[in-house]
Design a protein around this nucleic acid. Structure first.
Lengths: 230, 230
DNA sequence: TTTTTTATGTCGCCA
DNA sequence: TGGCGACGTAAAAAA
């Protein structure tokens, strides 16, 4: 990994053409030949970049560029798509290289899939007498996370999110609308289950007669451990 | 912009939970408080990050952490969502700060928006006698890229894409269906305009009575230059 | 390998 | 500010 801080301008030609006027930026050159051009703001997306597989090579400077004050120029070319990125450096303020090694990678946990798995195992969290029909119950417009039955035998459709927001309520509403047209299933009660439910989402859900259930992930995982243990 | 190369581990809790085991990585700390954790591979997406607005603060180390070899720890918290990122540093290999200033930003060229602008100016490309009604004509299900009239005064709805694929045809079909129900507009003819139209998309479009027009971006831009010149 | 789906998407526009 | 669509979407999962 080579890190260069420099006064530079960048030109990209590929799926679109783009230009970055002269300014001070951070250039991250990774071991696989890829390059990221970052400014001191924005989010994780670089201003400009080239993804691997690609190769960096120095560019012979023309008189015009030398006169404009260009000290050095790089050309980064994508192996397959022929996308091209040209970095013109006017002044290098910092330049260092670092041996990083291979990264062990990110371990994700607590995603929606795991919550769904846990709630399916502990369906009684919705209330005594609830029973699981099945996970990923298929409908014409997509799978409902969990289909269950309440103690009276009525259908319950459950939408699970890590964080409950409006679009989750909309999604569940679409499922309910469809399922309530099916005489075998109707009437179907909706349950919006999440670790955290935003006030706006709760209001919308309750206004539509959808029950909101806040899930305690740690407690549910604890229960699972107990179940696995015995 | 502060750049730190360090042996570290990272924990994230927000929409999901994630953990990065101890390894050497590059930490980019931006002026707005945001942080990116990069490895020496992958692509432009960091292994982990926190987007602004957020704030970084040092964490008081516990005995357990000190014994494990943690030298320093940071906590980055998102202002609104309460997402949290904790970076535990075992060894700092590099640490430098740089004044970057505000970036002038990326200048894009050749995107859909520009194509739309150009076609609106050169609406006669659809055929002599065509006139522009307006760009981004609003309908109940979203804006139609361009609404025009043919020489006979009939409505023409134009969907513009850089690369014309099936979903673009579907989108235009939805607009046409809706607009043709409006007695003021009906009958509305559809035009699918793109720099490149995939055979599948062309077949579907023509089957639905939608005209396909391939746009020559360079020629259109050339025309614009002439128009600006005189 | 190719296609489809997901995403801590991000970004930009317009109501 | 919130909703909606495009993105050089990228990245992961499925086929």
């Amino acid at each position: 990994m080579r890190i260069v801080v420099a006064d530079c301008s960048v030109d990209y030609a590929g799926r679109l053409s783009a230009h970055l006027p002269r300014a001070t930026r951070v250039l991250m050159l990774k071991a696989d030949g890829s390059i990221l051009v970052h400014s001191d703001g924005g989010s994780y997306k670089p201003l400009n970049w080239m993804s691997p597989p690609c190769a960096l090579s120095p560019v012979e400077l023309e008189t015009e560029q030398l006169e404009a004050g260009v000290v050095e120029a790089w050309q980064v070319t994508h192996q397959k798509t022929a996308d091209k990125l040209i970095v013109s450096l006017f002044e290098i303020l910092h330049d260092s290289s670092h041996e990083l090694g291979v990264d062990p990678g990110l371990i994700k946990d607590g995603v929606e899939a795991h919550l769904q798995e846990l709630l399916a195992e502990q369906i009684e969290l919705l209330g005594d007498g609830h029973t699981l029909v099945r996970r990923e119950y298929m409908t014409a417009i997509g799978p409902v996370d969990i289909l269950a039955k309440d103690p009276a035998g009525a259908s319950v459709a459950i939408e699970i999110k890590r964080r409950g927001e409006i679009d989750g309520v909309e999604q569940l509403t679409r499922y309910l609308e469809l399922m309530n047209r099916d005489p075998v299933l109707a009437p179907v009660q909706g349950v919006f289950a999440a670790q955290e439910i935003k006030p706006q989402a709760r209001t919308l859900a309750e206004d539509r007669g959808i029950r909101c259930v806040v899930l305690d992930y740690d407690a549910m995982r604890g229960m699972e451990d107990l179940n696995t243990l015995f």
